[in-house]
Design a protein around this nucleic acid. Structure first.
Lengths: 180, 180
DNA sequence: TTTGTCTGCGACAAATTGTCGCAATACTGA
DNA sequence: TCAGTATTGCGACAATTTGTCGCAGACAAA
């Protein structure tokens, strides 16, 4: 890239997976973005207010505050910011919430740099293909858990009680990625 | 309900599953809504323009045009309409799209009337369903299995394949009653 | 009859859940 | 600020549930 660094579009990458950030930020820089990395929402917020980015990639599940907070902050600061949510624990409940808060797209890991960059752009997916298959039982369970969890503001104990399920079991389920 | 029919909040229920509509519309009427049912997007659209509803429940997978079209029409006609998407073929991609088009919530079947009403937004009927207990995971599983089983005309092997579940396990589950 | 699929069920290993407990944090109301 | 309470993230082990394999009978189509 021969472009002056300051002319490049600014991009904030917020994810607490260090190696993932290294790989992805390099790939994004190759594509012409001026990347800033933050490994937690707490670290990202001051950067946002000091220097609102044009693009942002946010992981929802970071240690500490949820990425949803960051999305809101980004959107409040500059409604034109293109925000892509990228998470390994994708669920419909959090997707709905993220989009409502102003996210542009919602992808689940793993996703390569091209897919992410692509997600910044078009939103016109007119002909979306519906799944031919009904959701698997485990997927359904995952979605349901995520929804109740959100209704309980992320309180695991309360969620376990509401679902009449043992806290230990819920913990274990939450630890796994949403298979299938 | 002693309320005059015209004073009740209007609700459009768009789903091509006839029995499902019957059950749900009755449950919704009990909760005070003036329910109108449409079994396809084509049938629903004229109703929307003629008489924009305050609430809507839309299935995405209907014969013919996708429910996404209806969502857009509803939102274009009256941006204040509270739209809940309800589908048996839930996916994150369609959820994202539906919310962007103006849907309020996105639920996957099975969902009971309380959960749906709740999804319209706590603000509207704040005092109503505070203690709405979410269905237990096993209940959800039971209903889902029954639905898929019916789609497969009671064929256990095919259902097990569709649900990506072992036939033996499905058999065992079917042997039990729908425990809470 | 042969072939292919569906079904019910026994048996046993593999995996998941229920339970109990503990130490490290939050959170809350004097 | 401090005690009291709730939450959280585990480890460990027993109790249950699933995954797997296999087999025999039913049924329909070729």
């Amino acid at each position: 890239m021969t472009m002056d660094f300051n002319e490049r579009p600014s991009l904030l990458l917020a994810d607490d997976d260090v190696t993932f950030c290294q790989v992805l930020s390099r790939a994004l820089e190759k594509r012409g973005y001026a990347v800033t990395v933050a490994h937690s929402v707490e670290l990202a917020l001051p950067l946002v207010t000091a220097n609102p980015p044009e693009f942002a990639i946010v992981d929802l599940k970071m240690t500490g505050v949820s990425g949803l907070v960051l999305i809101q902050a980004l959107h409040d600061t500059d409604a034109a910011t293109r925000i892509v949510v990228l998470t390994g624990y994708a669920s419909i409940a959090t997707a709905v919430e993220a989009i409502k808060l102003g996210a542009t797209q919602y992808l689940s890991k793993p996703a390569n740099a091209d897919e992410i960059v692509n997600a910044f752009g078009h939103s016109a997916n007119a002909g979306l293909a519906l799944n031919a298959q009904p959701s698997s039982v485990s997927r359904l369970e995952w979605e349901h858990i995520q929804r109740v969890l959100q209704e309980n503001q992320g309180n695991i104990s309360a969620t376990a009680r509401a679902l009449n399920m043992h806290r230990r079991t819920l913990q274990r389920k939450l630890g796994k990625s949403p298979l299938l």
